[in-house]
Computed example of a mutant assay.
Amino acid sequence: MEIAENAALVVVDVQKGFEESRFWGPRNNPGADENIASLIDVWQRTGRPVVFVRHDSVSERSPLRPGQQGNDLKDYVRERRGKGAGRELLVAKTVNSAFYGTPDLDAWLKEAGISQIVLTGIQTNLCVETTARMGGNLGYDVVVAYDATHTFDLAGPFGWRRTADELGQASAVSLHGDGFARVVLTKEVVDAAR
């Protein structure tokens, strides 16, 4: 695997509100935070650009809404902001895709001549997947560090319910199998980025 010298790491919605298990329910991949931190560290150490994305929910019930502690980035992410030698951006959004946030992520990437993005964060099947699909549609070389993402169990129509593991795997298969992104493990990305 090749990671470009200017590949942007896009850290999607790693916010305190996702720690409220009573709101979200059971989650998968308890090692995601450690993997997210390792990706940020290698990006900062190598001077590559890092994009931090924050979901500013418009739902009054959501722990991610502005003005609530849950809207804040998790401590380990907040503490790493501004520590790298590369460019950095904070994107705030109210929908799933980081490409529909402020400031304009696509414009920022194009201005910097960045054609490869590596995605990590929360939730695998929602904001990470939507950002990956849109990135692929916009022509970026998209890499998803699967074990540096996580999601939660979810109920759907017809009484269907899927576990976080099932949802994460379905996202990985759809993204990778349909060519929107290469879905890989954190170790592969870290080794290639060093």
Score class of each variant (00 low, 15 high):
His176Tyr: 07
Ala193Gly: 08
Ala172Leu: 01
Asn125Tyr: 06
Arg78Gly: 10
Thr124Asn: 05
Leu89Thr: 02
Asp13Pro: 05
Lys74Phe: 01
Thr94His: 14
Leu185Val: 13
Ser57Val: 02
Gly139Glu: 09
Phe152Met: 01
Glu79Lys: 07
Ser115Arg: 15
Glu111Lys: 15
Phe52Thr: 09
Val144Glu: 05
Asp75Asn: 08
Lys16Asp: 06
Ala107Thr: 07
Asp147Pro: 04
Val118Thr: 08
Asp147Met: 14
Asp165Phe: 12
Trp160Ile: 05
Ala164Met: 02
Asp104Arg: 13
Leu126Gly: 08
Glu2His: 13
Asp56Ile: 00
Glu19Ile: 01
Leu138Val: 08
Tyr140Ile: 00
Gly179Gln: 04
Gly139Asn: 05
Ala112Cys: 08
Asp165Ile: 04
Val50Pro: 04
Ser174Pro: 07
Asn125Asp: 15
Asp141Gly: 03
Thr151Ile: 00
Thr46Arg: 15
Glu111Phe: 07
Lys74Thr: 09
Val173Trp: 12
Met134Cys: 04
Leu175Ala: 01
Glu5Ser: 14
His150Met: 11
Val77Tyr: 08
Gln116Pro: 05
Val11Gly: 03
Arg22Tyr: 05
Gly156Ile: 05
Glu2Leu: 10
Gly156Phe: 15
Pro30Ser: 01
Gly101Gln: 04
Ser97Lys: 11
Pro66Phe: 06
Val184Tyr: 02
His150Phe: 11
Val189Asp: 01
Val10Gln: 08
Leu167Arg: 13
Asn71His: 12
Val190Arg: 14
Tyr146Cys: 03
Ala8Trp: 10
Val50Gly: 04
Val58Gly: 11
Met134Val: 15
Pro30Ile: 00
Trp160Asn: 12
Val10His: 04
Lys83Val: 02
Val118Ala: 10
Leu175Cys: 01
Tyr140Met: 02
Asp106Lys: 15
Ala8Cys: 14
Ala172Gln: 11
Leu109His: 09
Asp41Tyr: 01
Arg162Tyr: 06
His55Asp: 10
Gly101Asn: 01
Val42Asp: 03
Asn137Ser: 13
Gly25Gln: 12
Gly179Glu: 00
Leu64Tyr: 09
Gly84Lys: 12
Phe158Thr: 11
Gly25Asp: 00
Val190Met: 09
Tyr140Arg: 13
Val53Ser: 11
Glu166Asp: 14
Leu138Phe: 15
Val58Asn: 12
Val51Ile: 12
Gln123Thr: 12
Gly121Glu: 10
Gly67Val: 11
Val95Glu: 14
Asn71Lys: 11
Gln123Asn: 06
Gly121His: 13
Leu90Ser: 06
Gly86Phe: 04
Gly31Val: 04
Pro49Asp: 03
Pro26Asp: 15
Val144Ser: 06
Glu60Trp: 10
Glu88Ala: 13
Arg48Ser: 10
Met134Phe: 03
Glu188Trp: 00
Arg80Met: 11
Lys83Gln: 12
Lys74Pro: 02
Cys127Val: 03
Leu126Thr: 06
Leu126Ser: 12
Ser115Phe: 09
Asp13Val: 05
Ala98Trp: 04
Arg133Met: 03
Glu34Thr: 10
